[in-house]
Every structure is written in structure tokens, then in C-alpha cells.
């Protein structure tokens, strides 16, 4: 299976729907170990990305991803904006020129995304940040052969849930040290929604 430009556009739109639906939940997570704006930030960014994408005609997946990256960087604010923006920008750069994205290319793109996030945020795995979801997903894609709706969603969910027991050492949550343990990392939760949205797009195609 390969993802075409409609699939990628649907991915972003579905991600937006999920952010809207879970805005309050994300904000609650961020109130617990952050400053309570993560839901608001993600909704603002994905709302703008989705509406930009809907308004425009694209021929290449990379262009959808790039516009998403730009909208996230320029609308989210907060730590998560540049990080998610970087993720989509790296993905876009990897698939540049392609009409469709095959599994291997997507896996490469995710690897680039993770590297980009880690570099920008100076964070690594296990620090209770969105790195923990993106990195686990890159690993998973490297191991697998083809897109699988259920497995992608499940893998992302597991990765998100594994942040519960971690102690934050990056981002605002790090200020709480031990007190950060026992909560889902907000950025990991929104990352999970992004991969869940991807899984649903794949499901629609199957």
C-alpha cells in the first residue's frame, strides 16, 4: 500500500478532528504537569493546518506535509509548535518529489522526524516527551513491512502509556521531578492522536 496526496491530506484533517475532540483532555494533562495550554495549542495549530489544506489543491504529499509543518510552527507557539513542525518538515523533506509514499519511505521519514525533534529539543528517549512516542513509532516502522491500521494505533497507544511511569527531565514537567510520575505526557498524548489518525486513514484505504 502507498499513501497518496489525498491520504496525507486526510491524515492532517483527521488529526485535527482528534485534537478538537480531545482538547479538554490534553489541557487537563498539561494542567497536571505543565501550564495547561497544550490542548489549546494543538487545536490552534491543527485547525489552521487543516483549513489551509482543505482550501488548497495539492499534487504532492510533500507539499501537504510542508504546509502542515509551517502552520504548526507559526500557529502553535509553546514548545510543541517547533517540535511537531520539525517532525512534519522532516517527513516532507524525505518524501519530496514523490507522488505517493511507500512504507519504506515513510519509515525513513519518521526516522528523520525523530532526529529532528531530538536535535531541536535537545531531548532523548525516556525523558517523558513526545520523543518517546515518535521514537517508538520510528522503531516500529523500521521493524515492519507494510502499513497496518491496528498495529500502528496499538503501538502508538503503548508508547504514550509508557510515558506515565517516566520521570520528566525535559520541558515544563521536569520542574516537578518525581511528582511528574504517574501522568501521561501531554505531547505524547497528542502524538498518539496523530498516529491514531494515520491508522484510521490506512483503515479507510484497506
Amino acid at each position: 500500500m502507498e499513501l497518496n496526496v489525498q491520504d496525507i491530506a486526510a491524515w492532517i484533517e483527521k488529526s485535527n478532528e482528534k485534537m478538537q475532540a480531545n482538547k479538554e483532555y490534553l489541557t487537563t494533562l498539561d494542567q497536571e504537569i505543565g501550564d495547561g495550554d497544550h490542548g489549546i495549542n494543538m487545536v490552534r495549530g491543527f485547525q489552521e493546518a487543516a483549513s489551509k489544506i482543505t482550501k488548497q489543491d495539492y499534487t504532492k504529499p510533500a507539499d501537504v506535509l510542508k504546509d502542515t509543518a509551517i502552520m504548526l510552527m507559526s500557529k502553535v507557539g509553546g514548545a510543541s509548535g517547533p517540535l511537531f513542525g520539525t517532525a512534519f518538515l522532516k517527513l516532507s523533506m524525505t518524501v519530496k518529489g514523490n507522488d505517493t509514499i511507500d512504507f519504506g519511505t515513510f519509515a525513513n521519514g519518521l526516522e528523520e522526524s525523530v532526529n529532528g525533534i531530538k536535535q531541536r529539543g535537545k531531548a532523548t528517549e525516556g525523558e517523558k516527551t513526545l520523543v518517546d512516542v515518535w521514537s517508538k513509532m520510528a522503531d516500529y516502522f523500521r521493524r515492519e513491512k507494510d502499513f497496518d491500521q491496528d498495529k500502528i494505533a496499538e503501538e502508538a497507544k503503548n508508547a504514550m502509556e509508557q510515558t506515565i511511569d517516566m520521570m520528566a527531565t525535559k520541558g515544563r514537567a521536569a520542574y516537578f521531578k518525581e511528582r511528574s510520575i504517574g501522568h501521561v505526557d501531554p505531547g505524547s498524548a497528542s502524538s498518539f492522536y496523530i498516529f491514531q489518525a494515520l491508522a484510521e486513514v490506512i483503515g479507510r484505504r484497506d
Partner: peptide, 11 residues
């Protein structure tokens, strides 16, 4: 000035 408690964006 960014949104409340949210960094302004690079642009």
C-alpha cells in the same frame, strides 16, 4: 506576545 502562557511563534 504569544497566546496566554504560550511562546510567540517564530514568525
Amino acid at each position: 506576545a504569544g497566546e496566554v502562557f504560550t511562546s510567540p511563534t517564530p514568525d
